[in-house]
Design a protein around this nucleic acid. Structure first.
Length: 576
DNA sequence: GCCGTTTTCGGCCCGACTGTTTTCAGTCG
């Protein structure tokens, strides 16, 4: 399901890397990087665009537009092939080793003829790096260590793993005497689906005790770097934690800077430069006088740049800068907007908590309505039967409104089979208040078959929500291959919502797909897919993902009042 | 290579830390 945009992004990034390795104009390499990012995040499918339209993509000029066009038409670009022929793919691999960048990789290739990570390890063993200028014993050690790390870990961890650790660290550091403020920033604050390292920011006049506290954490494995303003450790499990300590008066500028993303920061700094200002983690300064303009809060920094405060989940340079400048950033959906959860399980199937416990916990969260959606019989291992389901429904009706007045909906999670059919005949399905339908098998179907399968499920008048639409498991199973344009169109046409499944290893749909689907007029349901009372809280990760997809409360059916929701659940064809 | 109510030339985001250096290049975020 590689989007043409993703493919072109990868191609341009590769060329940028190779340019960096071959030396020459560093700005040229940066221009390709910038264009790569812009195309990766561009809302239109680049394979449908000609040279003129490609040039409308920010950062894409005549030269890159022509190369992209050529690539899309012929599958190759001579300029790229030429540099590829000179720099073996293995050399590019070298720069993925931490502490080894393009300059050192070039030296290794040019001086020693090294073309792969394996050859590099061998060369170090043979002490062949000893004579190279700029390579000392510590460099060798760092390279070997970096290779080791790369081999034992994919590097990134799931959002919840990083979040739990970060909250612990923030709590610990906040206790240090002299610590005036402490918070996590970085991709974690932006709710990216996986996290490469944890960024912690603290405010204090005396950084030493806070740095020491970080190094002394139980989870601290090794110290990667330790300075007055910045300290980096690696936890015993291999996750890097960066701590920056700034004076309290620089808090806003520092938080803005360390939240990123890099692309967003480049944009904000460019705006500063054009206004005769300089933006750094210490504040916004007047270039002429060197005087500090603002720095205490993020709001002030953005305002002085002529921008509304940008929610962290939007800071990816996907149009939020322009929207902030125009003053029409979306009013993003929040966890408080959610009136209910529409995909949950009990111990009747594979959940571990009873119906009563789930309802009690849901009611405590303040939900106004809540759907119980246990698995249907076609997932044979769940041992569902008509009798069990009807008995549960009777119990649900008894408990409806008994927990703080919360309305309880009776639903099910159907299984979309390889042909797009679901469990039970229509007359039985009609008895449910809400039906989620999901793919649980035959993940490897062709794009054509999978598309037909999902569209068929949407066309079923009883299917209200497509559960975890791409069925991916982050780091373990790729998304199914389908023509998402077709699927999104079918959802919009039939009044079928797409789920944003909040489980941290799913987060499915993902942010970019949400943005994409929204343009078709699709509605969404942010669900926990909870299998125990403990899981109901994961819905916060789904909300973060929805925000990354620019969703407002109106886009999300489980923020709606129950009467409006019920009307949606009747779908167009069954409107009474 | 891109881009322009400072511009079609001359800029391009900014700073911390490390390691190998005697004043700075490379890497990272």
């Amino acid at each position: 399901m590689a989007r043409p945009n993703d493919e072109v992004e990868a191609l341009l990034q590769e060329y940028a890397d190779l340019l960096a390795i071959t030396g020459g104009d560093a700005f040229k390499a940066r221009a390709y990087e910038k264009a790569a990012r812009a195309i990766g995040g561009y809302h239109e499918d680049v394979s449908t665009l000609g040279v003129r339209e490609l040039r409308a993509v920010p950062g894409v000029g005549k030269s890159i537009a022509e190369k992209v066009d050529e690539y899309l038409r012929t599958g190759s670009v001579p300029a790229f092939e030429e540099v590829r022929a000179r720099i073996p793919a293995g050399v590019r691999q070298l720069i993925t080793i931490p502490t080894l960048g393009p300059k050192k990789a070039a030296v290794l290739h040019d001086e020693l003829g090294i073309t792969s990570v394996e050859e590099l390890v061998e060369a170090i063993k043979q002490e062949r790096l000893r004579d190279l200028k700029g390579f000392g014993p510590k460099t060798e050690e760092n390279i070997l260590h970096g290779i080791e790390l790369m081999q034992q870990a994919g590097g990134r961890v799931l959002l919840n793993v990083a979040m739990e650790l970060a909250e612990e660290i923030v709590a610990e550091l906040s206790e240090v005497v002299g610590c005036q403020r402490c918070a996590y920033a970085g991709s974690l604050r932006r709710y990216r689906e996986t996290i490469g390292d944890i960024d912690i920011l603290a405010a204090s006049d005396d950084s030493a005790p806070i740095m020491a506290a970080l190094k002394n954490l139980d989870v601290a494995g090794e110290v990667i770097a330790g300075g007055e303003k910045k300290t980096s450790i690696r936890t015993t499990k291999g996750l890097q934690v960066d701590l920056r300590v700034v004076p309290l008066q620089a808090w806003g500028a520092a938080l803005q800077y360390f939240t990123g993303s890099q692309a967003h920061n480049v944009r904000t700094r460019e705006i500063a430069v054009h206004a005769g200002l300089k933006l750094s983690e210490y504040g916004l300064f007047d270039v002429e006088t060197g005087e500090l303009v603002v720095s205490e809060t993020e709001e002030e920094v953005y305002r002085r740049l002529g921008l509304a405060w940008v929610p962290p989940t939007l800071r990816e340079d996907r149009g939020e800068i322009e929207a902030a400048a125009r003053g029409d950033l979306p009013r993003l959906v929040t966890e408080d907007d959610l009136r209910g959860d529409l995909h949950t399980h009990t111990d009747l199937t594979d959940g571990v908590s009873t119906l009563e416990d789930m309802l009690a916990t849901a009611a405590e969260r303040g939900y106004r309505y809540y759907a119980v959606t246990d698995h249907a019989p076609n997932l044979v291992m769940q041992r569902m039967s008509d009798e069990k389901m009807l008995a549960q429904r009777a119990r649900v009706r008894e408990l409806d409104g008994k927990y703080r007045g919360m309305r309880v909906l009776h639903g099910t999670e159907l299984n979309i089979d390889a042909d797009g059919e679901v469990d039970w005949p229509p007359e039985f399905l009609a008895g449910f208040d809400v039906c989620v339908a999901s793919v649980h098998s035959s993940f490897g179907q062709s794009s054509e078959d999978m598309t037909r399968r999902l569209v068929r499920a949407c066309e079923n008048p009883h299917v209200n929500i497509i559960g975890h639409p791409t069925a991916r498991l982050i780091g373990r199973r790729p998304p199914v291959d389908a023509d998402l344009d077709e699927v999104f169109r079918a959802c919009a046409r039939t009044g079928t919502a797409l789920e944003i499944n909040s489980f941290p290893d799913r987060l499915d749909l993902r942010d970019e797909h949400i943005l994409w689907a929204k343009r078709f007029g699709v509605k969404f349901a942010i669900n926990s897919d909870a299998h125990s009372t403990m899981n109901l809280g994961v819905i916060g990760y789904g909300v973060g993902t929805a925000q990354r997809g620019w969703l407002t409360p109106d886009d999300v059916i489980n923020t709606w009042p129950l009467t409006k929701l019920r009307a949606f659940l009747r779908k167009g064809s069954r409107r009474s």
